[in-house]
């Protein structure tokens, strides 16, 4: 194999890694925001991501909406779903022991998975293709789908909008205040419940965007498709420093690129691809538990 060839292969793998990493990043942001504000691992997040792909699927397949409208509808529905889940399963437990709310989250995750099996059927469905994104462009000898460019661009655009929202708007200040301290924030006149609900809404919207692009890239959707990406993206959030949005994006990219390169360079380890993230998690927790961008959070007495 000539040097040029292997460089091309490397580039091919890298572009794949970057687009997978962007998808992980979008889901990881949802985890990190919810963890930041509620100190809760939202186990249902991966399944909200799964529901988004089904919403998009049915908008296109059943209601025959054009793709941009269908995706918009799916994004809005997923945002509402996230807020409903928070309202129904997490808000009543705001003052309960932490383990109760974690169990509730597990219950919601399991409920969504099985509800999807009951309502949508257990058999995988083919996600509708959008021709615009499927075209292949050639750069030198590297053939790349347009989608592969679209995914990281969308992710970065969303990241910047989100950072602006959090750092420069009143809503963002409210979110940061609630993340610091619920009681003090409410004394300052912030509607804590509304802020938390909004956080879930935004997190779910990002999961929906991630889910739709995931469906375009890997066009097979099934009720259990959210489980493994969900776990991995939580790991990406921990890797970047939980509670930190930029960190979640960096973590997502590291995980996505690492995974693709692992499979590319050590094909014998392909079967262990899903295990890679968890080994990474154990290593991070051993050596730098606060993650790459994380601040040290000390336990309040």
């Amino acid at each position: 194999m000539s040097l040029n060839m292997s460089l091309n292969t490397l580039l091919q793998h890298l572009t794949n890694g970057v687009s997978l990493g962007s998808l992980y990043a979008l889901i990881a942001i949802g985890y990190t925001m919810v963890y930041g504000i509620l100190r809760l691992i939202n186990f249902a997040h991966g399944d909200i991501f799964m529901m988004a792909t089904y919403f998009a699927f049915f908008s296109v397949a059943t209601f025959a909406l054009p793709w941009y409208l269908a995706f918009l509808v799916a994004i809005i529905l997923t945002g509402l779903l996230g807020m409903t889940v928070e309202r129904a399963a997490y808000r009543p437990l705001r003052n309960a022991p932490k383990i109760s709310i974690l169990i509730s989250a597990i219950g919601v995750a399991y409920l969504l998975e099985n509800l999807a099996i009951v309502v949508f059927g257990g058999r995988p469905k083919a996600f509708p293709a959008v021709d615009l994104f499927m075209d292949v462009v050639r750069i030198g000898d590297v053939a790349v789908q347009i989608l592969t460019f679209v995914i990281p661009v969308v992710t970065l655009a969303i990241l910047f909008i989100l950072l602006y929202l959090i750092n420069h708007t009143k809503t963002g200040i409210a979110m940061r205040a609630v993340a610091r301290d619920h009681e003090t924030a409410s004394l300052m006149g912030i509607d804590v419940n509304r802020t938390i609900s909004l956080t879930f809404g935004i997190g779910s919207i990002l999961a929906a965007v991630g889910g739709i692009m995931w469906g375009l890239k890997f066009p097979q959707i099934s009720p259990l498709m959210g489980v493994i990406p969900g776990l991995k993206c939580f790991i990406a959030a921990v890797l970047g420093g939980i509670g930190n949005i930029t960190g979640a994006v960096i973590g997502g990219f590291i995980l996505g690129i690492g995974e693709i390169l692992l499979v590319a360079f050590f094909p014998a380890l392909t079967g262990y691809r899903d295990a890679f993230a968890f080994i990474l998690l154990i290593l991070i927790l051993l050596f730098k538990p606060t993650g790459i961008m994380g601040e040290k959070i000390s336990e309040k007495v």
Binding site: I41, G271, A275, L281, L285
Partner: peptide, 20 residues
């Protein structure tokens, strides 16, 4: 570390053991 990391680590382990 914080208690809830154990949840993810053990859940992850349970998935890894299946992969292995």
């Amino acid at each position: 570390l914080r208690g809830d990391y154990l949840g993810i680590a053990t859940l992850g382990f349970a998935e890894i053991i299946r992969v292995v």
